[in-house]
Nucleic acid binder design. Structure first.
Lengths: 339, 339
DNA sequence: TTGAAAGCGCTAACAG
DNA sequence: CTGTTAGCGCTTTCAA
């Protein structure tokens, strides 16, 4: 039992006894059609279960496809998942569909996805770029009219629209909050690679806050904790030092989760913590976690808005939209330094 | 400055001085080609920045498009995000790309996405169906050879492959764990609607465990907590009763988060809790949360495997794959009933 | 108000 | 080893 050929516009036309073009007119509501034929056509469409082939349509009309390509590091990460959802909700209203892929922080995989998306003639491309990727190769595509928006971090080798959190201000604010609690040895647990935009910016904010308070910058207090496990270990090691920190700024959600875990393992409830990026359980933990909250849905919405404006003909120069972070004080940041 | 027309196969052919078909042969490696022409063609492809139009190719070859349609309730939900990632990783190896959308638990939105995906001639369709959706309309598409796989819950009106967690066994095991701790009044906090497959199954497991232990089933101990806020309130209300429960089985991750929140608000650390679906902070909380863990990545992988097998010609009857859950004992389930 | 012809970018089928 | 012709399913263009 071979799969039956799917019914086409012609099948419908034949069924009704009109030309294919007439069916097309009825379905797309362009040319004029008599009420009679319209009715007959619609009935036949229903009867045969006809579904127009969007790709065939597209190839003829020549424009870009009604899809938007989106590349994020990992779909399982709720931060990026929520960004994606924000994008989807915004482009849905324009009848656009998401073509999605995870780069897994691998530049080659990212590159492969971009190639595929371009081959599919996406209307726009949105990428949370991996650290080592180069995007110069996107120039041709963009100069032929396809909007490119970078998410969370700017791309390399290509000036394009970009949506980021207020990383530096957030890092500064979170650190200042700890300093206000009279902490003087504040560790920074960051992700990798060290050159990663978000890490760099948040670290810069951390340093600005130290400087503003006249505190020295101690490089040895800046450690790596890219995964939850790594951050937990890093935390434990920090606390074993001769001169341990009394407070920690965790530079992203995974680092923060690991830090919480590490503190729990070390049995330390006297270490202050501020997490960059809010955590699902922040208010249930004891102490509740003070966080520099990002707004991933707003990031997605802003990215979509930028791209749609470009599709509508906006030819102004590339913009960077900064979505503000918000310090949510809950308690973990206010533990007094135990000296 | 109008957008320049994108370069086509013909442009490349002309540039080199061969026919379009020759370029096609070089690029797709089907027919034989001399090393010389191949080289010249590839150089021209590079020079002109040619990218083949996948949709045009597709329309000619006639088969389904090299995309897979995936519909989940919410991309921001890490459970479904991880399922999606599992699917993506599996289909990538076959050169398939994900077309994705969120149903937002709205049957109409789900239906619209399905229609779009069918119009795009996806190779396969994977859906975590909304509670009230009907899928009879998918029969035509499926009988024309397109695999359909339901995720997390079976679809309605259509017998198709399906991948679910061992909901009933998990519910039973989680409840039995509480009973083993000598609890006799165990509440069930579930999501909505009441008819939702996962809720029904988990509740059935809960009842089986009660029955096996000779405990009565008390309907008043089964309450709704679909969102985190709702579950928190439900928990507080439960504990205010004349005869409060001494233990709680939370039927999904949101309910569990809310329950934890409710317990914290009520200042009750003496209520035992088992969460269906593991929580990111489970081991950091005090007490650490005992969970019936699901395996979303495995669910995604299994779904992809089913769909790919169908694409490879598997015509056996529809299967339901059950991905086992795993009880992770951490402490919260072993609080003794305080009488 | 409708139809016929041509063609979007690509490949199948045949020829050379 | 390469080119030609035809046509995928649809829409544009022009004519009736």
């Amino acid at each position: 039992m071979a799969a039956p050929r799917r019914t086409t516009l012609h099948d419908v036309a034949q069924e009704v006894g009109v030309s294919a073009k007439t069916v097309s007119r009825v379905l797309n509501g362009d040319g004029p059609t008599s009420a009679q034929t319209r009715e007959k056509v619609l009935a036949a469409v229903e009867r045969l279960g006809f579904q127009p082939n969007l790709m065939a349509r597209n190839i003829r009309t020549g424009g870009p496809d009604t899809t938007v390509g989106l590349i994020i590091p990992d779909m399982g990460n709720p931060f990026f998942g929520t960004v994606a959802r924000g994008i989807e909700d915004a482009i849905r209203e324009r009848g656009l569909t998401l073509l999605m892929g995870s780069s897994a922080d691998d530049p080659d995989r990212e590159r492969a996805l971009i190639t595929t998306f371009l081959a599919r003639r996406v209307s726009a491309l949105m990428v949370a770029p991996t650290a080592r990727a180069d995007h110069a190769h996107l120039r041709t595509a963009r100069s032929s009219g396809m909007p490119v928006v970078f998410l969370d971090r700017p791309g390399a080798g290509l000036t394009a629209d970009c949506v980021v959190s207020s990383n530096r201000a957030g890092g500064r604010e979170g650190t200042a909050h700890l300093i206000a609690g009279r902490h003087r040895r504040i560790a920074f647990i960051g992700d990798r690679p060290v050159g990663l935009f978000t890490r760099r910016e948040r670290l810069a904010g951390y340093r600005e806050a130290l400087e503003a308070a006249g505190l020295p910058y101690d490089r040895s207090l800046v450690v790596d904790g890219h995964t939850q496990a790594e951050a937990a270990e890093a935390t434990v090691r920090l606390l074993r030092r001769a001169e341990p920190p009394t407070a920690i700024l965790a530079a992203n959600n995974l680092s923060a989760m690991g830090t919480v875990l590490g503190l729990a393992r070390a049995g330390r409830r006297d270490i202050a913590l501020v997490s960059f990026d809010d955590l699902p359980f922040a208010e249930v933990l004891e102490p509740a976690i003070t966080a520099v909250a990002q707004d991933p849905a707003a990031i997605g919405a802003a990215a979509a808005e930028l791209a749609l404006a470009r599709l509508d003909g906006d030819r102004t120069r590339a913009r960077t939209v900064t979505v503000p972070t918000r310090l949510i004080v809950r308690g973990s940041g206010e533990l007094p330094p135990g000296t």
